[in-house]
Design a protein around this nucleic acid. Structure first.
Length: 727
DNA sequence: GCGCGGCCTG
DNA sequence: CAGGCCGCGC
């Protein structure tokens, strides 16, 4: 007599058994058999590292030498070269990053030969032409990552079986796997780019510094002249202005010589300042100077006018004032233009694409792209993708405000990134989202103006150059309940920031709530630390990231229906209604759901959620059925005729408790019949020993799914709950 | 490739 | 109840 008392446990066990045995979780099971091989891709990496050490000398010069060994040779040769300086936190290849990985999975497979490891990646002859120099230095850091990539790529390589269980066995999760899957070309060129960029930047720095120094000098000179003029006029009003002016050109050099010492100090200071390379500082200083002079000019005028009034005569005074004014104006203009120039220069330096575009950069590589084991990566990294990643990656390190614009709306070609989740958050650009939104929008029709990324810049103003929004901003705080017709202007920052701008009471279903909170979270992160895009991205949970997609779908679909009574989310009442509907139908079609939840704006997400609900209902239902079937068998029941489901039986109470907790709905008799049939089906199946078959329930499902009855029309009413429960 | 249902887990 | 995963069918 089997122990049917511990039914739930038994159920669990059967379930798990089924999984283990059957349902073709073959990947999982087979993986266990090959675990030795798959346990440690990193282990292979370590082996590679070690073996390359011993093979390097013999292998290197020959065609067929693997890239790995090439890299490793370089690595060994340059070991400790300290080439990491240019990669603060790139995290690609710090030695420290190796240790954990090795430690994490370093426990097996001594059986794999170097050939096994290397053969999949054997390179065709011709590596002699390999420009090793190119690989040195910057590439050093990428080598490790590259090797890791290669190893990783083994899982995609047909010649090496690497079951998916690797991801389970190894502590490195899927996300890590994906995160690090940068195409090697990209890494290669990236390092080069960074190097070039550094040089460029330094050059720009120098030039900018010189320019700024020049500007400062000019400013100072102008200022001195200005002061000189008024000092002299104040000191000796009767002096000939022309004389002063005439002297100026002669004075200036002398003065500037005199001031040279001062300026020396200034220059020293400014040098320090410039070493900080804070252009804003120079602008501020220039502005301050300008203001100061403007104030001086303004302050001087009344005084001098008063003086001239007192004197009661024009003559030389008025002409002097006229000339002084003119001079002041000229000086102001000069200062203005100088200022403008400075500003322009600064802006230009910061705005112009400071690095060669990736497209330009790639050809500079002496290493033909095909030399890189693209196949090793499993997928062929297309250049666009790589470049985009590079761009995005570069955003973290290389500020480029223009990126924010060029990658924005209306440049569809700019992005055809993969739709794979993950660091996508960082990678995904607004235009991508826009693209997606438009694509789905084809079904949903027009989308909300706020969906357009351009409103991003409008509502946000200038965003920090290095910051790329992981989410399309307008979506972030999109008020779910906002009517379609709402003017873009109504989409204010307040809306985005204040949770109460959303009617969460209508969004109480967890899905919506989560999404909403997710949006707020995202925005919160950004608004709090816009300067730390990395942390922003990291702070976002994967689930949040993933929900983004559905969000977009939602967003794209919402607008046409907004403003009516249709809500965008499922409420607890909808859940209750669904449960009651389950008494009639266990397998509602999506069309049916749409009919009966007509007050919900359907999209893929809502539909799947409803379907999931019913799936969960069924799950519980069948679990109960199996449980009670086994229990009855346990209790000595021998025939189905002894089984019946009445309103006071335990089974019904359990079901009613689940679907009609408040017991305020009268369960239709038909449900009792169906429940009885189901129970008998389970009973028979178990008695017949069919439950040894992993999919023994499927037969029952087939039977039960035909027993759905019509759902009363009243369920189609949005207010059906009130009507049903008040009856 | 996608939708769906089922199983499992949290 | 939701999410992840998987297999299956279209």
């Amino acid at each position: 007599m089997p122990d049917h008392d511990s039914d739930s446990l038994l159920n669990r066990q059967t379930k798990r058994r089924r999984v283990d045995i059957g349902v073709k979780r073959t990947v999982g099971s087979t993986s266990s058999s090959t675990a030795a091989v798959t346990t440690s891709k990193s282990n292979v990496l370590r082996k590679l590292l070690k073996r390359a050490n011993s093979y390097e000398d013999t292998m290197m010069p020959f065609p067929g030498t693997t890239i790995i060994s090439q890299l490793l040779k370089n690595n060994i040769a340059k070991n400790g070269g300290g080439g990491d300086s240019g990669f603060p936190g790139s995290g690609l290849s710090n030695a420290s990053s190796d240790a954990p990985q090795e430690d994490a999975c370093s426990n097996s497979s001594q059986d794999s030969t170097p050939q096994e490891c290397l053969s999949p990646f054997g390179r065709p002859p011709g590596l002699a032409t390999f420009d090793i120099e190119r690989l040195n230095d910057e590439h050093l850091r990428a080598k490790r990552a590259r090797v890791e990539n290669i190893i990783r790529g083994m899982s995609h390589s047909p010649s090496v079986v690497v079951p998916a269980a690797t991801r389970e066995v190894c502590s490195s999760s899927r996300e890590n796997k994906r995160k690090q899957r940068l195409p090697q070309q990209q890494q290669q060129s990236f390092t080069q780019l960074v190097c070039q960029r550094k040089e460029q930047k330094q050059e720009e720095r120098r030039q900018l510094k010189l320019q700024l120094e020049d500007m400062q000098k000019q400013l100072r000179q102008l200022q001195e002249k200005f002061f000189q003029i008024y000092d002299s006029t104040d000191d000796s009003e009767h002096n000939d202005l022309h004389n002063d002016i005439g002297n100026m050109s002669e004075d200036s050099p002398a003065r500037s010589d005199n001031g040279g010492d001062d300026r020396g100090g200034d220059d020293l200071r400014s040098d320090n300042e410039m070493s900080d390379l804070d252009p804003g500082h120079f602008i501020d200083r220039a502005r301050a100077l300008l203001q100061e002079q403007a104030l001086l000019a303004d302050g001087e005028k009344p005084r001098r006018e008063g003086l001239s009034r007192n004197k009661g005569h024009g003559g030389p005074g008025s002409s002097m004032h006229a000339e002084g004014k003119q001079l002041a104006e000229t000086l102001k203009q000069e200062l203005n233009s100088a200022m403008t120039q400075v500003v322009d220069t600064v802006v230009k330096v910061f705005a112009k694409p400071p690095r060669p575009t990736p497209q330009q950069a790639f050809p500079t590589l002496s290493i033909p792209p095909e030399r890189f084991p693209t196949a090793v990566n499993g997928d062929n990294p297309n250049f666009h993708t790589a470049n985009q990643r590079l761009q995005c990656f570069g955003d973290v390190i290389i500020p480029n405000p223009l990126d924010s614009f060029t990658s924005m709306p209306g440049i569809p070609g700019a992005t055809n990134d993969q739709t794979e989740a993950l660091p996508l958050v960082v990678r995904k650009t607004p235009s991508e989202h826009h693209h997606q939104a438009s694509a789905v929008g084809a079904h949903g029709g027009n989308h909300h103006p706020a969906l357009h990324p351009s409103s991003l810049s409008a509502s946000m103003g200038f965003s920090p150059p290095s910051f790329r929004h992981p989410f399309p901003l307008p979506l972030m705080g999109y008020p779910f309940q906002s009517p379609l017709g709402a003017p873009p202007g109504s989409y204010t920052g307040k809306d985005r920031n204040s949770p109460d701008s959303m009617d969460l009471s209508r969004e109480s279903t967890s899905l919506r709530t989560k999404m909403s909170s997710g949006h707020h979270l995202g925005h919160h992160h950004r608004s709090c630390s816009p300067a730390h895009p990395g942390s922003t991205a990291e702070g976002l949970s994967l689930s949040l990231i993933k929900s983004e997609c559905s969000d977009l779908q939602d967003m794209a679909d919402i607008s046409p229906y907004s403003g009516s009574n249709i809500q965008e989310g499922l409420s607890p009442n909808h859940l209750k209604k669904a449960k009651l509907m389950f008494f009639y139908t266990r397998y509602p079609s999506s069309n049916m759901l749409k009919m009966y939840f007509s007050d919900v704006k359907f999209n893929r997400c809502i539909t799947s959620q409803l379907i999931k609900w019913f799936s969960n209902f069924r799950e519980f239902y069948y679990i109960q059925m199996e449980k009670f079937a086994r229990q009855s068998i346990n209790d000595g029941v021998t025939g189905t005729e002894e089984l019946s489901v009445s309103r006071d039986c335990e089974l019904f109470r359990a079901l009613n408790m689940h679907y009609n907790k408040a017991n305020d709905f009268e369960v239709p008799d038909r449900f009792l019949e169906v429940a009885e049939i189901t129970l008998r089906e389970f009973f028979n199946a178990i008695v017949a020993g069919k439950d040894v078959d992993p999919s023994w329930k499927k037969a029952i499902y087939k039977v039960i799914c035909k027993l759905d009855s019509e759902v009363p029309e009243i369920f189609k009413s949005p207010n059906c709950l009130q009507e049903l429960l008040h009856e």
